[in-house]
């Protein structure tokens, strides 16, 4: 069985992607997945070589045949999303508001509306030094990011099966909505990256509640841990109360950003014990999954870059 590990954070910008990239390197042979399809960044660090590109169809969209429209505005009445409005006697259709439900097409007495698949982005199967990577690009303003996340996860599972990988490592989206639910449901272990800020603690509670809602095991990685000691303690207390392991406390350190700008992963940042912290975090994730031995084995076979 392949174990799926998903890195998330309620609040954005806490360091998910940096952590995922470092884990990918430490894991050795793994399938890597960028599920933050809205603002995918993992490829910047992992520099994948794209092998295969596939169009993503995110649901449907209404297409109007203007010459068949008799202007009865039944569609406007049925559309609950405000995508159709008769303005100055002309039917105006707003594709950004269209949910693709097809109710307008169903009830148009003149067959003036057809539903067509909506090309909402594309996804890629790529090669990185650490394993196969699945990532995607959602076109601006598109919806159904949850669906794209689900598809990427299915592809990742297929790839892991074919290649006999022990882990699928995913960089999740921020927030707690549709794409996050698709990213964490059924995953083997959730790593929440947070920071000791007023917003960070607030959003940690929300994402932790979500993981609880879906009964997922959780570990917390506290980034910028020394930025506010009182709030760091609050995070620690929350973890203790809920039984989450604190995977690492990574200090606030400008060298992290320098590494990022140079395209290096966190496990190479020796300042302030960061490399050791991230390695310890990965070990804890692995042992939480009950796979300590395999990890050792992989650590010895780690590609050197």
């Amino acid at each position: 069985m392949t174990a799926e590990i998903t890195v998330v954070s309620g609040k954005g910008g806490t360091g998910k992607t940096s952590v995922t990239a470092a884990f990918a390197k430490l894991a050795g042979r793994t399938v890597i997945c960028d599920l933050d399809v809205d603002a995918a960044d993992l490829h910047i660090l992992l520099q994948p070589e794209i092998l295969e590109t596939t169009a993503f169809e995110g649901g449907k969209i209404a297409i109007f045949e203007q010459n068949m429209c008799k202007g009865c505005v039944l569609c406007e009445r049925y559309c609950r999303f405000g995508a159709i409005a008769k303005i100055d006697g002309v039917i105006k259709f707003d594709p950004l508001r269209c949910e693709g439900c097809g109710v307008c097409a169903q009830f148009c007495p003149f067959g003036a509306i057809v539903m067509r698949p909506r090309r909402a982005g594309q996804w890629f199967r790529s090669r990185t030094p650490f394993g196969t990577m699945l990532h995607a690009e959602l076109y601006p303003g598109e919806e159904n990011s949850g669906l794209l996340v689900t598809q990427l996860r299915e592809e990742a599972r297929d790839a892991a099966r074919e290649e006999g990988c022990d882990y699928i490592l995913s960089d999740g989206p921020p927030g707690i909505g549709c794409p996050v639910i698709s990213a964490v449901s059924g995953t083997g272990f959730v790593v929440i990256v947070t920071e000791p800020t007023v917003s960070g603690v607030h959003d940690l509670r929300r994402i932790a509640d979500l993981c609880n809602h879906f009964s997922r095991p959780v570990g917390v990685l506290l980034n910028k841990a020394d930025l506010n000691l009182a709030l760091a303690d609050e995070v620690g207390a929350l973890c203790a109360e809920r039984g989450y392991p604190v995977l690492a406390r990574i200090p606030y350190e400008p060298a992290v950003v320098r590494a990022l700008v140079e395209g290096r992963t966190l496990d190479s940042v020796t300042e302030n014990g960061i490399a050791d912290g991230i390695k310890h975090a990965w070990q804890t994730v692995i042992s939480s999954l009950g796979r300590k031995e395999k990890c050792q084995q992989h650590a010895n076979n780690m590609p050197t870059t």
Binding site: A39, E142, S145, P174, G177
Partner: peptide
């Protein structure tokens, strides 16, 4: 606004 570039941010 929410982060990102998909429907929540756009709306």
């Amino acid at each position: 606004a929410p982060p990102g570039t998909s429907c929540p941010a756009l709306s």
